[in-house]
């Protein structure tokens, strides 16, 4: 049964139909969690004893940074699946993820910079965490540029998958940069689950925002993937029929 499900999902036509049903639900879930996260994060949570209200930037900065790495792993994973099993839909998911990943990386860098100014006294330092995250942005931009530079989309997808896989080496560097090097960036406070050094009133909105971002990514990547499916399948009967109905 599972085999059958995956086989069907790999068919572009079936994917287009199912994703069309999923998108509004994922979008609604994401919107609800965003509202909850904003309310608990901006209104309910108390100011930080050291950083005052400036720490509230965390509720977008941290989820955006998590997403920048999560989406990269999805992109590299989908790319590898496309490379090995030649599944068209995996290639489509990989390239659709790249643009969104680049936007989230940009968001993490910019909000970090805006948070850094009042707290560190500078918009930017070349420290390990910031530099490796900037390299992540360049990796995403490289993937997008490479994909657009090659006309044959299947060849392009293969080239992109290899570049994405090589870049995976950067992900643990970002994650451990605050432990391996002396950085201005603070160490982890959430991922040490034995005793997270963040108060529950701040952890809850942070997690709400993190899940909101995940659901947001899920529906936006499906929207992009649907465009890519239409583009690649433009000569098939079902796409033509769909185009003429709208």
């Amino acid at each position: 049964m599972f085999n059958n499900f995956f086989h069907k999902m790999a068919s572009p036509k079936y994917f287009y139909r199912i994703s069309g049903i999923l998108i509004p639900w994922l979008a609604a879930g994401s919107a609800l969690l965003f509202l909850a996260g904003l309310y608990y994060g901006l209104v309910k949570a108390p100011p930080d004893y050291q950083q005052g209200d400036s720490y509230r930037i965390m509720f977008i900065h941290v989820p955006a940074a998590w997403m920048s790495m999560f989406i990269y792993m999805v992109m590299a994973g989908a790319g590898a699946i496309g490379l090995i099993w030649r599944i068209k839909l995996a290639e489509i998911m990989a390239i659709s993820s790249a643009t969104i990943g680049a936007w989230f990386t940009f968001l993490a860098l910019v909000t970090g910079s805006i948070w850094g100014k009042p707290m560190w006294g500078t918009w930017w330092v070349w420290d390990a965490r910031l530099t490796s995250e900037l390299i992540l942005l360049f990796l995403y931009l490289g993937v997008i540029a490479l994909y657009n530079a090659i006309d044959d989309k299947r060849t392009a997808a293969r080239a992109v998958a290899i570049l994405a896989l090589v870049g995976v080496v950067n992900i643990p560097i970002i994650h451990y940069s605050v432990e391996w090097w002396n950085t201005l960036h603070q160490g982890p406070t959430v991922t040490k689950f034995d005793k997270p050094s963040i108060h529950l009133s701040m952890l809850i909105p942070l997690l709400q925002m993190a899940v909101a971002f995940k659901l947001y990514y899920a529906f936006v990547v499906l929207m992009r993937a649907r465009c890519e499916v239409l583009e690649r399948e433009r000569n098939t009967g079902w796409v033509r029929e769909l185009a003429e109905k709208t």
Binding site: P47, I57, I60, H61, L107, I114, P118
Partner: peptide, 16 residues
């Protein structure tokens, strides 16, 4: 007012 950090906080949320 965001405890004096209005510019930083609202710029971040605006960009997001």
């Amino acid at each position: 007012h965001m405890g004096g950090y209005a510019f930083y906080v609202w710029t971040s949320y605006g960009i997001a």
